[in-house]
C-alpha cells in the first residue's frame, strides 16, 4: 500500500502534463462539456480496470473482461427489448457476467491452469455468446430510464462517474480492510509462503475472478446505457486498456504490490489520451496504433525496471 502511494505522484505528474499539453494544443479541450465526456467515457474503463488490477495483484491476468462486458451488455439489452423490466434485465445481465467470472475462477483455481489461457478462452466465449444472443448486430435503442445510467447526471456529475467511484471504494475497501485483500497481496507476493501461512490460495483466486466478472458486468451495462446500444464487440479491447491502466498506475505485472488508487490515475491517463488524440483529429486507426505503442512502452518500461 505504502509503495503504491509513493508511486502515485510520478503518474500524477504525467496526468497533469498530459492535460496541460492537450489543453495547450487543442482548442475546446478545456471545456466543461469535454471534461464531462472524458469522465463519462473514462468511468467504464475505470470499473473494468479494477477487475484487471485484482487479477494482476495476485500475479494473474484477466483477458476475459472485455468479452464478459459485451456479454453482459447484450444480455441486458436483448432482455429489455423482449419487454423485461429494466431492473430484471440488468440483474440477469449481471448474473451472466458473474457466472462467467465464477467459471473462470473455478477453472483457474481448481485445475491450476495459467490464467492467460483460461481467460483468453473465456474472452472468446463471452464475445461469442454476445454475438449469438444479439444475432451478430448491435442491440440499439433503450428506454430513457435505462439511458440515465450511462448518460444521466447526479449533482451535475455524470452517473457513470458515481458508479465508478462506488466500485473503486468497494474494491479499495476489499483490498485494505478484508482478509481477501490481504491474501490477494500475499498470493501475488509469494504464493508458496502464503499457502504455508494458511492462506486459502484457491479460494482467493476464485474470488478474484468472480469479482472481475461482476465488475465487467457493471461496466458492460453502463457502456450499453451510455451508447444507447449494446454491441456484441462493445467490450473488445477493454481488457487490454485495463491491463495498461493497472500497469501505468503502478501495479507491476509481477504482482504483489500496487493498488487501485494508481489504477484510477492510470485509467484517467488512458482516457484523456484517447480523448486528446481524438480531438486532435487523428483517425481512429492511428489512435489505435499510437495507444498500443504507448501501452506496450509503459509495460515494457515496468518490465525493464523489474529486470534490473
Amino acid at each position: 500500500m505504502v509503495a503504491a502511494i509513493k508511486r502515485v505522484p510520478g503518474i500524477v505528474y504525467v496526468l497533469v502534463a498530459l492535460i496541460m499539453g492537450f489543453g495547450w494544443f487543442i482548442p475546446g479541450f478545456f471545456t466543461v462539456s469535454n471534461f464531462l465526456s472524458v469522465i463519462r467515457q473514462g468511468s467504464v474503463l475505470a470499473v473494468v480496470s479494477l477487475g484487471a488490477t485484482l487479477a494482476i495483484l495476485s500475479r494473474g491476468v484477466n483477458l476475459s473482461l472485455g468479452g464478459v462486458m459485451s456479454l453482459a451488455g447484450v444480455v441486458t439489452g436483448v432482455l429489455m427489448h423482449r419487454g423485461w423490466s429494466i431492473m430484471a434485465a440488468i440483474l440477469v445481465g449481471m448474473a451472466t457476467a458473474t457466472a462467467a467470472g465464477w467459471l473462470t475462477g473455478i477453472v483457474i483455481a481448481g485445475a491450476g491452469i495459467a490464467p492467460f489461457v483460461v481467460t483468453l478462452g473465456m474472452m472468446s466465449v463471452g464475445e461469442g455468446l454476445a454475438l449469438v444472443i444479439s444475432g451478430g448486430a448491435s442491440v440499439p435503442g433503450f428506454s430513457n430510464a435505462f439511458q440515465v445510467l450511462g448518460q444521466g447526471y447526479l449533482l451535475r456529475v455524470p452517473i457513470p462517474f458515481w458508479i465508478a467511484v462506488m466500485a473503486f471504494l468497494i474494491v479499495h475497501f476489499i483490498l485494505r480492510d478484508t482478509q481477501l485483500g490481504v491474501s490477494i497481496y500475499a498470493v501475488g507476493g509469494n504464493e508458496d509462503a502464503a499457502s504455508l501461512s494458511g492462506v486459502d490460495v484457491r479460494r482467493c483466486k476464485l474470488q478474484i475472478y468472480l469479482i472481475g466478472g461482476i465488475l465487467a458486468g457493471v461496466a458492460g451495462v453502463v457502456l450499453a446505457s451510455r451508447m444507447n446500444s449494446a454491441h456484441p464487440s462493445g467490450g473488445m479491447g477493454f481488457e487490454f486498456d485495463a491491463i495498461a491502466a493497472t500497469v501505468v498506475g503502478g501495479t507491476p505485472m509481477s504482482g504483489g504490490r500496487g493498488g487501485v488508487v494508481g489504477t484510477m490515475v492510470g485509467a484517467a491517463i488512458i482516457s484523456i489520451m484517447r480523448n486528446g488524440l481524438n480531438m486532435l483529429g487523428l483517425p481512429t486507426p492511428w489512435q489505435m496504433t499510437i495507444i498500443g505503442m504507448i501501452i506496450i512502452g509503459s509495460i515494457a518500461l515496468d518490465a525493464l525496471k523489474s529486470n534490473r
Binding site: D177, Q179, Y185, A186, G189, A194
Partner: peptide
C-alpha cells in the same frame, strides 16, 4: 528461506491468515 510476503506490512505478515476480525 523466509516465508514472509515481501510487499505486506510487518503486522500483516505477523497475522497473515489469522487477522483479528472487526
Amino acid at each position: 528461506e523466509f516465508t514472509l510476503i515481501p510487499y505486506l506490512t510487518v503486522a500483516q505478515n505477523i497475522f497473515l491468515a489469522r487477522e483479528p476480525l472487526r
